[in-house]
């Protein structure tokens, strides 16, 4: 019995099942299902309008939705559950006319952090994000990066079990982004569960698992390597030769999934390292002179572009 209870508490921290959110006629999220395990960092990828923020708002109980959301063992939006969640919204949203410390104190109070705990907690967090010497500054006088850091620690003031971060590094310079992610990893090692959305593919590599969204649905799920494989349905061999069109036809005839990408032949195979000699051999036998042939490591960015399409991806990066 004891074991069973233990096992249950180790189960998913967040279960989203068949989530559907409508804005009038528009389906912002359409039958989305996923889970976040305890102690996991789950990244949500997707272009603008894919439904990431809407999904987060539904999880926080800020929107009416259809389907089932179970978070920290409770119902989305209930008071007990809200106590256990730290939320950092996408756009800046703290009190501009309060000081750094006053903002922290306010959120500590409404999250019910005990009096004895508050002082210690505020000092600790300010030190982590190096804002201790700015604590009496009005928020409106802070730089963008400082505001972002303050937002992060405001969402952590009550030591939440789950952190929900909506593009926490948007508009943050690269060194600070790295600091943020180091901090996320530390929190994660302490056992915190993190759900994070991002546009930066290098950041996404830091996540234990990813889901890729488009048009309100999930189009891929897994760790970074799995996502890459799913994007192409395999691994990639790139070949350049004197007669690319002819070579393409030869490879297709023997059953390889091939296409021309940027004037080169791209061959999708189950295992690029093992298949490379075989592919080269076939072309040589047919007198195709090969300029070069190599296995190509797919980046997450490549995979993302495949999934969401170049146009959407461009839009999402600029927006």
């Amino acid at each position: 019995m004891f074991l069973l209870v233990n096992k249950l508490s180790m189960a998913a921290k967040l279960v989203v099942e068949n989530l559907t959110v409508r804005y009038g006629e528009f389906l912002a999220v359409d039958g989305l299902t996923f889970q976040v395990e305890e102690g996991e960092i789950l990244g949500m990828l997707g272009p603008n309008g894919a439904g990431k923020t809407t999904t987060i708002k539904a999880i926080l109980g800020l929107l009416p939705f259809e389907g089932r959301i179970e978070i920290a063992g409770g119902v989305a939006g209930s008071l007990e559950v809200r106590r256990k969640i730290g939320y950092m919204p996408q756009s800046f949203s703290l009190y501009q006319n309060l000081t750094v410390e006053e903002n922290l104190r306010f959120f500590a109070a409404i999250y019910g952090v005990s009096k004895g705990e508050v002082e210690k907690r505020i000092k600790e967090l300010l030190e982590i994000v190096k804002l201790l010497n700015r604590k009496d500054e009005l928020v409106k006088n802070l730089s963008g990066g400082m505001k972002q850091r303050l937002m992060l620690i405001c969402s952590m003031i009550h030591d939440p079990e789950i952190l929900i971060l909506d593009e926490p590094t948007a508009g943050v310079d690269p060194p600070l982004r790295r600091t943020f992610w180091e901090h996320f990893r530390e929190l994660n090692e302490e056992g915190k569960t993190i759900l994070v959305t991002t546009h930066y593919m290098d950041e996404a590599e830091n996540c234990d698992r990813l889901i890729v969204m488009r048009d309100g649905t999930k189009i891929a799920e897994g760790n970074a390597d799995e996502i890459k494989k799913q994007a192409l349905g395999g691994e990639l061999i790139i070949i350049d030769s004197t007669k690319n069109q002819e070579a393409l036809q030869i490879l297709r005839d023997v059953g390889f999934d091939s296409k021309i990408i940027e004037d080169k032949i791209a061959v999708i195979v189950d295992n690029s390292a093992r298949r490379l000699p075989e592919v080269v051999d076939i072309l040589k036998k047919r007198d195709v002179s090969i300029a070069y042939a190599e296995t190509r490591k797919l980046t997450l960015e490549d995979a993302f572009l495949r999934f969401v399409g170049e146009d959407d991806a461009m839009q999402s990066n600029s927006g």
Partner: peptide, 14 residues
């Protein structure tokens, strides 16, 4: 307008 409403509503504040 400042976005704090949404933030507050995600807290346990009644």
């Amino acid at each position: 307008e400042e976005g704090t409403l949404e933030l507050i509503l995600a807290t346990p504040l009644r």
